[in-house]
Design a protein around this nucleic acid. Structure first.
Lengths: 218, 218
DNA sequence: ACATTAATGTATACAGTGCAAACATTGCAG
DNA sequence: CTGCAATGTTTGCACTGTATACATTAATGT
């Protein structure tokens, strides 16, 4: 080829500047693009090649940043777990000193997160990724979220507004219920099981209240 | 007595629609083989070609019985839904006249079913299959199961042992909780969130009891 | 009974996929 | 400036879903 100018950044007109052939940070962009494509379709039809094309790199470029496709998926799932934990944390500090309100708020945020990122959630809990310690970051985030949930209940107990059953059991019941409700919702199973058109927010509120009735002391 | 019926052996009580013509139950065998392969690995790595090979036919043979791969998956999911409905029905007739026991039994069977067929359940609720009416049989089965659940609660209410909240709401809470518990269990999320090694049966019992506390009248 | 036909299974082909290996381009360290 | 490590590209292979054309066989009308 010719030596000097033509090969390098000789694209003065038009295009955005940031395309130095060594792409900015492909790692991050892969995650973003993949997450977007994931939600646009579903897990099955997400391809690494499509991700690469969306970013504008060759279809093997992502392999410089992710060992394989599963590794990319794990990265997306980790983001999801972190977001979930964040949501719960925000719910806690939003209603400081009111465990019942914290649980309700956390439930709403959990459901909201699931509804807004259904495919990501399916990825997080859908058994696609291995359960072992292949991707440690996954478990840590999940752990954190559950810990926060238990802390809420603990506070409620010490305040005397929750009965003193096993904490993990109560937390698990709550988590299961909200988790199940969210997943049933995005799976579409509710739309025809329940007669009326389903509105999540009041539904979540009602379910949580029903659960809180069972958790109340006395 | 055998001149005609010898060759035309009525097909062996297959899982899906009967094939009045041409004998040979490839349809049924595809479903069985696919289901088996599905549980041996996971959804992502289930291939039609592997199914065909397992049965011993050419890799395009299944297309005579299933429009495409998704259609096969829908068939498997339908089997799963029907099995779920059956389990709940059996729980009901097992504890006739005792709604609380029916719910508990149904919960145990639900969880058991999920644990024994995790990949199938992921398929049923994992958002792989379209939610619309592309596969009507899917929705019908799910409907039936939910109807049975509501009937249990209705009976409990008329017997005066459940509070008289909205039936669909109570049913939904119960379903969500058991569903969520099952899915969390097979997703592996529980193994590290909960400290001790998780044993499902007592856990299901405990969760159900906690819920029943919230449902009780008074 | 036999030819016709529809139902069923096969052979072949093709585009899309994940991924490995060899190669090219860049930014940086000596 | 030279060499190197990080990053991106090209090429290639095995495998997948599935469309098409072909072969076979069971069911049916005459």
């Amino acid at each position: 080829m010719n030596s000097q100018t033509a090969t390098t950044k000789s694209e003065p007109a038009g295009c955005l500047s940031t395309k130095p052939y060594h792409h900015g940070d492909l790692h991050h962009q892969c995650l973003c693009a993949a997450r977007q494509l994931l939600e646009e379709n579903n897990i099955a039809s997400l391809s690494l090649r499509a991700v690469a094309k969306k970013i504008g790199v060759s279809h093997t470029a992502p392999y410089r940043h992710f060992k394989d496709k599963e590794s990319l998926l794990a990265g997306i799932a980790a983001i999801g777990f972190r977001e979930l934990t964040t949501q719960i944390a925000q719910a806690v500090e939003m209603h400081s000193g009111d465990p019942a309100a914290q649980l309700l708020e956390a439930g709403h945020r959990y459901v909201q997160m699931v509804i807004e990122n259904p495919q990501c959630v399916q990825l997080m809990f859908g058994g696609i990724l291995p359960c072992d310690d292949t991707y440690p970051e996954l478990r840590e985030s999940g752990d954190l979220a559950f810990d926060r949930l238990k802390m809420i209940i603990e506070e409620g107990q010490s305040m005397g507004i929750f009965k003193k059953a096993e904490i993990e059991l109560m937390a698990l019941t709550l988590w299961s219920s909200i988790h199940g409700l969210s997943l049933l919702f995005i799976s579409g199973s509710l739309d025809e099981a329940v007669a009326a058109p389903v509105d999540v927010h009041p539904l979540t509120t009602a379910v949580t209240h029903l659960l809180l009735d069972g958790l109340k002391s006395g």
